[in-house]
Nucleic acid binder design. Structure first.
Lengths: 215, 215
DNA sequence: TCCTGAATGTGACTTTTGTCACTTTTCATT
DNA sequence: AATGAAAAGTGACAAAAGTCACATTCAGGA
């Protein structure tokens, strides 16, 4: 009972301001909360899409991978969903991306069958879905911008700033190897560029830890 | 009268199979057909989004541009719409992309005010909007893949093949300069790589014209 | 046919990024 | 405190892509 109450409160807190009361009740009724540690794969390339995941708390990174090579696409946070999964209502399909927790996270899983029903019944749902798609498109385009128009050192700095904003801290606890994977580069190159950023006074380097001078 | 009849037939032919009859009638009633020559800008970065454009015939390329630099994102064809414009119902916004005709095209312009109404009334409309968003997302991801994971010579070959498929012809009537812009590279580099492709027997080069050996 | 501007070709060079083969540092265990 | 594995640093080199300056070629109008 306590557990159920807590769950209701959690959902109300994260999603309450997004949906009308009636829909929220339905969501609470049919959704299952899943708790994940950091660095767990929530959804992998090729997985069947059976649920629409809503992030209640924590944070997720969405990345593309092609034969072992990876590239960070965007992050999703509390209140967001993964737009790539929304398609499943229309046509059964599999994931084209990988979603990984980057913090301990709680995720509300809604079976896809409710998607179509809610689309016709709730304007708040329609609004939410369209907003989600649009945000994700915009973020994807921002990613394209970065890869196409920026040099790696600029992308690296942007990456560090984005991370800091996301975590709300100037301290980034990543190894150079992890950063290299997110940016689809190599560890040696990232180490080199980080050293340059340190020389320029933008960051301080420690083992497993980078401290940004400012955002 | 003849003009109106032709217009109705055109819309029915391009969009008829997508929407239920009743919605199609509404579309025909409120939409305005716009005819554009090749290489006309339909929508530019920063433009207000007031209409949802449906491609009736012809073809459009959608590209991102940042201070004079350009990058091709994807193409849209008959029956498609530009997903980036769909957001406008929810929140007034401006375009983040540029849409340019690459063939003489006819486009049906629907005032955005109908979007929300149709979303609640027509399941075919909902399905169409979701499908559009998803297709565009998928294409954007494909573009990200290309930029992130492929070398320029591979991207160039993919570009030529895509063009050929789009136009339904092995002959591509572009200057090296135009290709360089779409791929966000420089003319000299593209000329060099095209020469390599010719040496490998993949293409034949002429002035203003490239002929693919096979798709 | 000749001329001209646009399109294409080319060599020499630079910058950016990636790769390889190591060494050194750091931190958490014994 | 010793040690061992992971993380980070480093020099030398290679590959990919971009830049510059100029030469050549072509297509279409005068």
């Amino acid at each position: 009972m306590t557990e159920a109450r807590t769950q209701r409160e959690l959902i109300e807190e994260s999603l309450g301001f997004l949906f009308e009361a009636e829909l929220l009740e339905e969501i609470i009724e049919v959704g299952k909360v899943k708790s994940l540690e950091s660095d767990q794969i929530l959804l992998d390339t090729g997985d069947d899409l059976l649920y629409i995941p809503f992030i209640l708390d924590g944070a997720i990174k969405v990345s593309r991978d092609r034969d072992e090579e990876e590239l960070l696409l965007y992050y999703i946070e509390s209140g967001d969903t993964c737009a790539m999964t929304l398609q499943c209502t229309v046509r059964k399909s599999v994931s084209e991306i990988r979603a990984t927790t980057i913090e301990p996270s709680r995720i509300l899983m809604i079976p896809i069958m409710y998607m179509e029903k809610w689309m016709s019944n709730y304007s708040s749902w329609r609004r939410y879905i369209l907003e989600s798609y649009h945000s994700r498109m915009t973020e994807l385009i921002e990613t394209v911008d970065a890869i196409a128009f920026m040099r790696l050192d600029e992308r690296l700095e942007k990456y560090l700033v984005d991370q800091a904003k996301l975590k709300g801290s100037l301290e980034i606890k990543h190894t150079h190897q992890q950063i290299a994977e997110d940016l689809h580069s190599s560890r040696v190159v990232i180490s080199r560029l980080l050293k340059q950023l340190e020389t320029k006074g933008r960051i301080q380097l420690y083992r497993n830890r980078i401290v940004l001078s400012s955002i």
